[in-house]
């Protein structure tokens, strides 16, 4: 009935179905956007935790203690707990510290560090015990961590760490290599406070040490030893803490202005000597 429709063979611009953006440019834009986005979420979470944290009752916090401790492990150490108990007895009645159940754990780790975890757990690394010469020095470290509890700094660190973990698992899924990488660095994030917070905890620790032992002996020995050992290359402890020289100076100033006496230190308990 109808004649055949003629076919015209023409070639077209074949790129119509493909966007012309360069893949690398796209990658960099999106990665940049991602970094900015994560930065905003991270800072926002940090501010929100700071606001919320002061209002979280210690009871709620104690519910978290198991979770946080599981990340570190370690064993509850009687000699360390005894020192902590003696310090705690000197803390004023109305201090929030009494709401906590302070437990000290010893963890096998070469890093010279101690961490305050939610709910009142303190984890001391064996690397730190190996550097300590007297009970007073160890008490200073524990009193410093109790200062973090008293100021509730430990929750701020945790909140930020959790925020980071949430961002990463949202972006990459819970079992990707990226989230493994971040949860690895989460340990250091949790222990990372601002320099002001560290200085406050140092002051609190010094006052508690003096109240408990009657003198400030041993309060700066530990830092002096570390500063002498590592004059330039700063080990882990100092990455998250102020420079030991600055800490020593601040502590000395406080000792002078309050007229704290200095006496002989008590040697380390034999149970702790074995750790070394």
């Amino acid at each position: 009935m109808q004649s055949k429709i003629p076919f015209i063979a023409r070639s077209t611009d074949d790129t119509v179905n493909v966007s012309r953006t360069h893949p690398l440019a796209e990658l960099f834009w999106m990665l940049g956007g991602l970094v900015v986005l994560c930065g905003i979420i991270f800072i926002a979470l940090g501010i929100i935790t700071d606001l919320v944290v002061a209002r979280v009752p210690v009871k709620v916090e104690r519910a978290l203690r198991g979770i946080a401790l599981d990340q570190y492990g370690g064993e509850r150490h009687p000699a360390l707990n005894e020192i902590a108990g003696n310090l705690l007895a000197q803390v004023p009645r109305d201090s929030p510290l009494h709401d906590y159940e302070i437990n000290v754990y010893l963890m096998e780790n070469e890093e010279i560090n101690a961490v305050a975890l939610p709910g009142g757990n303190i984890v001391v690394f064996t690397g730190l015990v190996a550097q300590v010469e007297s009970e007073n020095e160890l008490a200073m470290v524990l009193a410093h961590e109790m200062g973090h509890f008293s100021h509730r700094d430990h929750l701020r660190g945790l909140g930020r760490g959790l925020g980071l973990a949430v961002i990463v698992s949202l972006l990459f899924g819970p079992d990707s290599s990226a989230s493994d990488l971040v949860s690895g660095s989460l340990l250091s994030f949790q222990a990372h406070y601002s320099q002001d917070q560290e200085a406050d905890a140092d002051r609190y620790g010094l006052d508690l040490l003096v109240r408990s032992y009657g003198h400030a002996g041993g309060s700066i020995d530990f830092f002096e030893r570390l500063a002498a050992q590592h004059p330039d290359r700063l080990p882990y402890l100092f990455a998250s803490h102020p420079h030991p020289d600055a800490r020593i100076a601040a502590l000395k100033e406080r000792i002078d202005s309050y007229g704290y006496p200095s006496q002989e230190t008590i040697p380390l308990d034999s149970a702790l000597y074995d750790v070394r």
Partner: peptide
């Protein structure tokens, strides 16, 4: 009335 044809065209996204 169709007078000419050019084969298939595609669009995708």
């Amino acid at each position: 009335t169709i007078v000419e044809h050019y084969g298939i065209v595609q669009g995708s996204t």
